[in-house]
Design a protein around this nucleic acid. Structure first.
Lengths: 164, 164
DNA sequence: GCCCCATAGTTGGGTATCAAACTACATCCT
DNA sequence: AGGATGTAGTTTGATACCCAACTATGGGGC
């Protein structure tokens, strides 16, 4: 219940009261960019709290899934698929290796690139996170409504693909 | 053209070639959370580059708009409307004051809270950024399509408002 | 074989963010 | 009036990210 509903914001006080304050959002109310950010932030926070319960960080989740589905993927391919800079991946991969969730081997044919693979422990952790993510998705689906879900997803994909 | 289209990723090499690599996204392909993040990231990056051209950071934009539309707003109200923690706002407000874009006065009735207002210079900068944002929005609209825009926006607002 | 340039991954610097602890002021209750 | 409790804003510490510069490796042309 954090953030905008187009009219104002709702704040929770410590005693459990809620105070509504009317805020004028001006053009932000009908601009896609702002609302996209607010929605993503809210969804991310929710998933973040959820995945904290199982002791994992949300960023690890997409990474593990992509490695599981593309065994032997390189870090650069992974960073592209994940939409992050390759340098952001360095500490993540290090952490996952250290905790024994993935393994990383130099390629024979090209000794610059690594091949990443899940370990059995990694598969177990991924299964746990996937269940957690499915609950999160059900929550999102409830808000979006099944009828509009497909269209909504299509538009998101187009934005990711066609934005310059 | 960065990121997922549901089938793979497209990478640009230095010689201008494009190399397509087929990536299996598994459940990520049809999960809202992941695609929401990818779309937001892409849109944000685009706006970020655009606003760099006029020497401003994208985060400042929503802040200035909200102050303009709600003269005398407090920092806490602002942080709620903006969907950020109030502590994130401290350096932003400091920077805007230092550069003479906003002014901040203690309230008489409650000497803890500040009232924020735009200066004339701030109004000028906001006008500049608004033009920049409108171009960005036109680009988004083109991708989304006018027919689906309203529905899309509604769903984004619902996610921001109803997510726990 | 050697040079040039491209690529895989890392490092370093800078920014944005959150959460929790803190300071100063306000309000409520008795 | 004064102590308990709550709120506005700041500080501090941690995380995640980008970008540019770097190291090491690969490969084509000669």
């Amino acid at each position: 219940m954090r953030g905008s509903n187009g009219k104002g914001v709702v704040r929770r006080t410590k005693n459990g009261e809620t105070v509504a304050k009317s805020i004028n959002f001006g053009p932000l109310a009908y601009w896609v960019g702002f609302n996209l950010r607010m929605a993503q932030e809210a969804a991310f926070q929710a998933f973040s709290h959820r995945s904290q319960e199982i002791g994992e960080s949300p960023g690890r989740f997409a990474t593990l899934t992509l490695i599981a589905r593309n065994p032997g993927i390189s870090q650069t391919e992974l960073s592209l698929a994940n939409g992050r800079d390759k340098s952001s991946l360095t500490p993540v991969v290090e952490d996952l290796v250290r905790r024994g969730l993935i393994e990383r081997k130099r390629m024979d044919s090209d000794r610059r690139t690594y091949r990443l693979n899940l370990t059995p422990a990694g598969k177990k952790t991924l299964a746990l996170m996937t269940r957690c993510a499915r609950r999160h998705e059900r929550n999102l689906d409830r808000i979006i409504g099944l009828r509009d879900r497909k269209k909504f997803l299509q538009i998101l994909k187009r934005i990711a693909a066609e934005m310059e």
